[in-house]
Simulated scan of single mutants.
Amino acid sequence: MSTINNLVSFIRDQYKTEKFIPLHEPRFRGNEKKYVLDTIDSTFVSSVGAYVDKFEVLMQEFTNTQKAVAVVNGTASLQVALRLAGVKEGDEVLTQALTFIATANAIMYNQAHPVFLDVDLDTMGLSPTAVSLFLEEYGDLRDDGCYNKSTGRKISACMPMHTFGFPVHLDELLEVCNQWQIPVVEDAAESLGSYYKGQHTGSLGLISGFSFNGNKTVTCGGGGAIVTNNLELGIHGKYLTTTAKKPHPYEFFHDELGYNYRMPNLNAALACAQLEELEGFLLDKRNLATEYDEFFTNEGVKFRKELPNTRTNYWLMCVELNNKSERDMFLKATNEQGIMTRPIWALMYRLPMYESCQRDSQKNAEFLEERIVNIPSSVR
């Protein structure tokens, strides 16, 4: 209990308040109001406007990719990214059960089937070893791609999620997936500002999706982005998310099933201002992580840190407790004292709509599910 009391004092000192401290709240201290008011004055507040274009360029520059497409939220970005990667009705997508539900939902929105494989203990993200073992047992490589021998379905994509901004072991995962001719679609929703061996997350797979929800490092209320180095795919993604309407000064003609997933200019204005502040946000969060690490080391608690050859954005910082009962005590005590903490997500196969999905042993995922706790991580 002394650790909890010390932690509450430490966090209150970091955020200089005796009020309730949330897990992650946005900071608006740049050009947010200026750009939003400019958008209102322009009357271009909907899906067409200069800030949408600017936002896409900024995302391309920051992630060092060929094409970014602004969309309405992170889930939409993943749904369309999977379709662009070739996922069709009845196909399968390899992913992790230790994730936010949007990962699995995006697969289902394409009328495909998630296959839940284990994570690595160090990254908390999809394990290349687990993927390799699964494919060695169930993979059937044919002329038109990889199939699951146990179901007969085509495995059309592999979607790792960079948990809390910690990059998965991408080199190893890409090697395995390339061997089995399975495209990698990165769920980079939580990892804006994270790097793997010097490359931004979301830029190494075929295509990826980011989120700009209210609790992300950078937010525009909602919002998302599809990012890719495949220019042709990116252009098609822009087309699909703008209702697949053929360009014409006044006539309406749509030649395939598209989506009205356009990010409004109003949101894009906010996003542009937030992206201007991103480097400062990342620095502040990195400094907070260093202070947390020192604090928890003195308390004998494991604070989750970035791995060699990676640079995490420390979106949501977390500790690893010794067991579920210690985790539950930690959660109860901190929340009762006005410090918001939360457990990691319930594993996807524990949810009724995903309980029948194929999965492996999930040894590491279940270990982490019982021990990981997120702690306040807002920019100060």
Rank of each mutant, 00 (worst) to 15 (best):
S211M: 08
T243V: 15
V227S: 06
G209F: 01
K238N: 02
L204N: 11
V218Y: 04
N230A: 07
G223N: 03
I226Q: 01
I235S: 02
L192P: 07
Y196K: 14
S191K: 05
T201W: 01
Y196L: 13
T242R: 12
G224W: 03
I226E: 00
G237S: 01
T219R: 05
Y239S: 01
I207V: 11
K246F: 11
G234M: 12
L192R: 06
F210L: 11
V218H: 09
V227E: 01
T241N: 15
K197N: 08
G237W: 10
S208T: 05
G223H: 07
K238C: 00
V227R: 02
G193T: 07
S211C: 09
K216S: 08
E232P: 12
H200T: 07
G202W: 03
V218L: 13
G205C: 08
N230Y: 14
N230E: 02
H236V: 03
A225N: 03
L231V: 14
N213F: 10
G221N: 03
T242H: 15
T243Q: 15
K197E: 01
N213D: 11
L204G: 01
T217R: 06
L192I: 08
I207A: 02
K216L: 06
N215P: 00
G214V: 07
N215F: 13
G209D: 00
S208R: 05
Y239E: 01
I235H: 04
T242G: 04
K238G: 00
A244G: 13
K246Q: 14
A244N: 15
L192Y: 10
V218R: 07
L233A: 02
S191Y: 01
G222H: 06
N215A: 13
S208I: 01
G214L: 11
T243H: 15
K238P: 00
T241C: 15
G205L: 06
G234F: 14
L233W: 11
N213S: 13
L192F: 05
S194Q: 12
A225F: 00
E190K: 10
A189Y: 09
S203A: 15
S211I: 05
Y196N: 12
C220E: 02
V227I: 09
K216E: 06
A244F: 13
E190S: 12
S211R: 14
L206N: 04
S203N: 09
Y239G: 00
G222R: 11
Q199D: 13
K216N: 05
Y196V: 08
T219D: 02
T217W: 09
Y196I: 13
V227N: 11
G224N: 08
N229M: 03
A244R: 12
V218Q: 09
T201S: 10
Y239L: 02
G202R: 00
Y196G: 11
P247A: 11
G214K: 10
L204F: 00
H236R: 14
Q199F: 14
